[in-house]
């Protein structure tokens, strides 16, 4: 960890001003970084993977940016809301089980108490080669240096959205429910506020795995919006241990059903892709269909149609399919 300047931003404009000094074109490499829960940033600074020269504490914005609002048809969540608070919210548990569960099943209780929603969706990959600077070959850390994971120990790595430059998995859970439910993300920058589909926030690695999002340096996520209510929704997460562990495969499923027929369906996958992953084609198979196990299996197959396995992670395709089918079944049969 290199020495850094620590500043506190007491309001959004102070934060904008402090972050404006950042420059460059890549948020993750920007010399000025915002600190919310700190559960990723501090970690990566200690590992010398991130080396900001200035850290802006945006926790003073918590008051204004932590709201959980279910008034009207939509759900609005402030970016500084803590994962634990949203997961424990009784109305969210009822109207958006997929949101509550994706938060509840993430990390540990201590981390959920600290981590904010905005920071959580920007959580960086857990690729062990990325996080260990003694490996010279990491295209995400050192563009053009190669990828140690490609032929290395890659059990935890992605099978969807990969490129020949990077197969690092997007590690988070909550993002899967946001992308499944057509969430939008509110972004504040020096030229004002903009709102984009959550699906537009993350970038697949392609030829520039070092650029992970469409955020510009100096921008901050201020909140999220999820349209409509999704009481028939499920987040199913398969992992090596019962808690405090990343997904080997997960599925965020939301269904709108009437008389056993699916009117609308949403499906997103976690633990298997380089970015929060919406399985649009696969979910399309469900629409206006009577739900049964065979249909669930067809959807699961379709969800992994384009998967590219590596040496240790081929199992994620079979596992992912079973997780999708089971999550669909659980959503279809749940009491609403």
């Amino acid at each position: 960890m290199q020495p850094f300047v620590f500043q506190s931003a007491n309001d959004p404009s102070a934060a904008m001003q402090a972050l404006a000094a950042s420059g460059g074109n890549n948020v993750t490499e920007a010399p000025v970084q915002a600190l919310a829960g700190g559960t990723t940033l501090i970690d990566l600074m200690k590992l010398d993977v991130m080396r900001p020269s200035t850290v802006i504490d945006i926790n003073p914005l918590s008051g204004a940016w932590s709201q959980i609002n279910l008034e009207g048809e939509n759900l609005r969540l402030g970016a500084m809301a803590r994962m634990a608070d949203v997961a424990a919210h009784p109305e969210i548990q009822k109207a958006y089980p997929v949101v509550a569960d994706s938060l509840k099943l993430a990390a540990s209780a201590q981390l959920r108490n600290m981590a904010t929603l905005g920071g959580n969706v920007l959580q960086r990959t857990r690729c062990t080669y990325f996080r260990d600077i003694s490996y010279g070959n990491c295209n995400k850390r050192n563009p053009g240096s190669g990828c140690a994971a490609m032929e290395g120990v890659n059990r935890m790595h992605a099978v969807l959205g990969t490129s020949d430059q990077c197969i690092a998995t997007y590690a988070g859970d909550f993002a899967q429910s946001l992308i499944a439910l057509d969430g939008t993300v509110e972004i504040i920058g020096k030229s004002g506020t903009r709102s984009i589909a959550f699906a537009q926030l993350h970038r697949q690695p392609g030829n520039s795995p070092q650029i992970e999002t469409t955020l510009a340096p100096g921008e901050l996520i201020s909140g999220f919006m999820i349209p409509g209510r999704w009481p028939r929704s499920v987040y199913l997460k398969a992992r090596d241990r019962q808690s405090y562990e990343f997904a080997l495969a997960s599925a965020a499923v939301a269904l709108d059903m009437q008389n056993g027929v699916v009117r609308d369906a949403r499906l997103a996958l976690g633990g298997v892709a380089t970015v929060p992953w919406r399985a649009r084609e696969a979910e399309g198979l469900l629409k206006e269909q009577k739900f049964d196990d065979a249909l669930a299996e067809r959807v699961a197959d379709a969800a992994f149609a384009g998967a590219t396995p590596r040496h240790h992670n081929a199992f994620k395709i079979a596992l992912g399919k079973r997780v999708v089918a089971r999550a669909l079944y659980q959503a279809a049969t749940m009491e609403v």
């Binding site: 540990s108 857990r126 062990t128 090596d240 241990r241 019962q242 808690s243 405090y244 562990e245």
Partner: peptide, 12 residues
Amino acid sequence: NLADYLVPVNAD
């Protein structure tokens, strides 16, 4: 590291 070298947690 203790994130990737798995040991059981209380829930296990």
